[in-house]
């Protein structure tokens, strides 16, 4: 069936929908679209763009696997992959030998403990409280009138640790605003916010038992300040792959290919 050998992974996230087009484990194209109100529309749009970039058409695709919060809404997918499984597959492919994964999304985060083959063993998930999610950083960045990326950069130049008293986004937002009024520097506030969220993310790993070799994927993994704070909290170097936001989608594509090969072998 997979004459073309083209496999697509779609990660339907709450904020963005990511598409990766692969062949034989190699990435041919990747694109994203804002999920907005229609996850299926976003997935179709990102898919057409990605295929166009790779110079391919829909007919060339052997199979599509969907993952992420909105995976079930992407009804043109041929199969559905749990995001924990997809994360593990994606990380194993680009960074073999990792022992744990942090995947942070807009509305949730998960810490995954891997076995010696790179498959998911156990995990901790937080997707019901925004205090450990990308939204938290975005809200605080908005209060500081900067982008989340700038917030990361600025935080590297902090001069003083000012721990946030609150943890709930709603309360931290007002804490940030009152710190601005008190003329606290943006660098120090940014650092305080990122350190707070890192402690909460770190605690997911402490519950699992921290091991050496942690990969960080998802959009917030591009935030250098957050990575720095996490490294301090977890006491080790954190590895961020290239384009960390596409790792889960890549994992889904790899799962689709693996399933197709298995089916072929059986047939």
């Amino acid at each position: 069936m997979s004459k073309t050998g083209i496999f697509v992974g779609i990660d339907g996230g709450s904020q963005t929908t990511k598409v990766v087009v692969t062949a034989g484990g190699k990435v041919l194209a990747k694109k994203f679209a804002y999920t907005d109100f229609d996850a299926k529309d976003a997935a179709s749009a990102a898919l057409s763009e990605a295929l166009a970039e790779a110079g391919l058409g829909m007919d060339d695709v052997a199979a599509i696997a969907a993952t992420g919060t909105n995976r079930q809404l992407i009804d043109f997918a041929n199969s559905y992959v749990n995001e924990i499984v997809a994360d593990a597959a994606g990380v194993h492919h680009v960074l073999p030998g990792m022992s744990m994964i942090l995947d942070m999304g807009a509305e949730g985060s998960r810490a995954i403990d891997l076995d010696e083959n790179g498959a998911a063993k156990t995990y901790e998930i937080n997707d019901r409280c925004a205090s450990g999610a990308g939204t938290f950083i975005e809200t605080c960045a908005r209060a500081l009138e900067i982008t989340p990326a700038d917030m990361g950069e600025l935080s590297l130049h902090y001069t003083k640790d000012i721990p946030m008293k609150a943890q709930c986004v709603v309360f931290v937002e007002s804490e940030v605003i009152s710190l601005i009024h008190q003329k606290e520097s943006k660098e120090n506030i940014a650092r305080g916010v990122l350190m707070g969220i890192s402690t909460r993310l770190g605690s997911m790993f402490r519950r699992l038992g921290i091991r050496e070799g942690i990969a960080f994927v998802g959009w917030p993994a591009n935030n250098v300040g957050l990575v720095k704070c996490l490294e301090e909290d977890l006491g080790q170097k954190i590895t961020v792959p290239e384009d960390p936001e596409y790792i889960c989608a890549l994992g889904a594509a790899l799962c689709a290919e693996k399933a197709a090969k298995k089916k072929e072998a059986e047939a």
């Binding site: 008293k165 609150a166 943890q167 402690t199 909460r200 770190g202 605690s203 402490r206 519950r207 699992l208 038992g209």
Partner: peptide
């Protein structure tokens, strides 16, 4: 008082596994 709102995090060491 300053630790009451971080119990899940602070107790995670003793409750690991």
């Amino acid at each position: 008082e300053e630790q009451r709102n971080s119990l899940r995090t602070l107790c995670s060491g003793c409750k690991a596994g």
